Deep mutational scan, measured.
Amino acid sequence: HSLRVHINGKDFEVHNADEHVIRALEELIRRGADADELKEFLERWKG
């Protein structure tokens, strides 16, 4: 899957995101994670 996440006016393109990554991202958003947390998660995932 390809996923586009809009954080703090920046678009993050997440390519080849598997279900696990997408679910983790949705969980963060549901918990009310702020932009920094989401960005950190995506950067860690992209490795």
Rank of each mutant, 00 (worst) to 15 (best):
I22T: 03
A33V: 08
E13T: 07
N8F: 04
F41C: 05
A17D: 03
E13N: 02
E37L: 09
A33L: 09
A17V: 15
V5T: 02
L25W: 04
D11W: 15
E43Q: 09
L42Y: 13
S2W: 13
E37A: 12
E19C: 13
G32Y: 05
E40Y: 06
L25T: 01
N8Q: 05
K10L: 05
H1Y: 00
A24F: 08
E43M: 07
E26F: 06
E27Q: 10
R44G: 12
A35H: 09
G47W: 03
A35M: 10
N8P: 00
V21Y: 02
L3Y: 05
A24E: 11
I29T: 03
E26S: 08
E13G: 01
R23L: 10
G32H: 07
H20W: 11
H6Q: 11
G32I: 04
V21G: 02
G32K: 05
R31T: 13
D36S: 10
L28V: 04
E40Q: 11
S2K: 14
N16W: 05
H6K: 14
W45N: 12
N8W: 02
K39H: 14
A33F: 10
G32V: 03
G47A: 12
V14S: 01
L3G: 13
I7H: 02
L42P: 00
R23E: 10
E40P: 02
A17N: 02
R31Y: 08
H20E: 13
V5N: 00
G47E: 14
L42V: 12
L28E: 07
K39N: 13
E13K: 02
A17S: 04
A33G: 06
V21C: 04
E40L: 10
D36E: 11
A35T: 13
H6E: 06
A35W: 14
V21N: 02
E19L: 12
R30E: 07
H1R: 15
G9W: 01
D34F: 05
K10P: 00
I7E: 01
A35N: 05
G9P: 00
E37C: 08
K46W: 14
E27P: 01
E13R: 02
E40M: 09
K39L: 14
K10E: 12
D36W: 07
E43H: 08
E27F: 04
F41K: 02
D36M: 06
R30Y: 07
I22F: 05
R31S: 11
E19T: 07
G9F: 00
R31P: 01
L28W: 06
V21D: 04
N8L: 04
R31G: 12
A24C: 06
G32A: 05
A24S: 07
H6M: 06
D18L: 04
G47Y: 04
V21F: 09
F12R: 00
V21E: 04
L3T: 15
H15V: 11
S2L: 15
H20A: 13
A35C: 07
V5K: 00
E43V: 07
F12W: 06
I29A: 05
S2Q: 15
W45I: 14
D11T: 14
G32T: 03
H20C: 11
E37M: 13
E27W: 04
R4K: 15
H6I: 13
H1V: 15
L25R: 00
E43A: 08
N16K: 04
L42S: 02
E37V: 10
H1S: 15
R31E: 11
A17M: 06
E27R: 06
L42I: 10
G9D: 02
E37G: 08
F41M: 09
A35Q: 06
W45G: 11
A24Y: 09
A17Q: 07
A17P: 08
V14W: 03
K46F: 13
I29R: 02
R23V: 07
G9N: 02
L3N: 14
G9K: 00
A17F: 03
L25Y: 03
A24Q: 11
F41Q: 04
R31D: 12
L3I: 15
R44K: 13
E26K: 13
E19F: 07
L3H: 14
L3R: 05
E43I: 07
H20P: 09
L42R: 01
E37P: 01
H1K: 15
G32L: 05
H1D: 15
R4Q: 15
D36Q: 09
I29L: 09
N16Q: 06
I7G: 01
E27S: 10
D18P: 14
E27N: 09
R23Q: 09
V14K: 00
R44H: 12
V5W: 02
I22Q: 02
D36K: 09
D11Y: 14
K39S: 13
H15A: 06
N8M: 04
E37D: 13
V5D: 01
N8V: 01
N16R: 04
A17H: 03
H20S: 12
K46C: 06
F41R: 02
E27A: 12
L28I: 08
G9Y: 00
F41P: 00
D11M: 13
L38R: 00
K10A: 06
W45Q: 12
I22N: 01
R44L: 12
L28Q: 06
D18W: 02
I29Y: 04
L25F: 06
H6R: 14
I29H: 03
L42T: 04
E27Y: 04
R31H: 11
N16H: 10
A35Y: 14
R30I: 11
R44P: 04
V21L: 15
H1G: 15
N8Y: 03
G9H: 01
V5S: 01
L42W: 08
G47M: 10
L38E: 00
I7W: 02
L42C: 06
E19Q: 11
I22Y: 04
E19Y: 09
R30P: 01
E19V: 12
V21T: 13
E26G: 07
N8D: 11
D18A: 11
A33Q: 03
A24H: 13
D34R: 07
H1I: 15
N16V: 06
G47F: 05
F12E: 01
E26Y: 07
D34Y: 05
H1T: 15
G9T: 00
F12K: 00
H6W: 02
N8H: 05
I7F: 03
L38I: 08
W45Y: 13
I7N: 00
E13A: 04
N16P: 03
A24W: 08
L25Q: 00
E27L: 05
A17T: 06
N16A: 08
H15E: 07
R30A: 13
D34K: 07
G32Q: 07
V5L: 07
E37F: 09
D18S: 13
R23H: 12
A24G: 08
E13D: 04
D36T: 09
I7Q: 01
E43S: 07
H6A: 04
D34P: 09
R30C: 11
N16Y: 09
R31I: 11
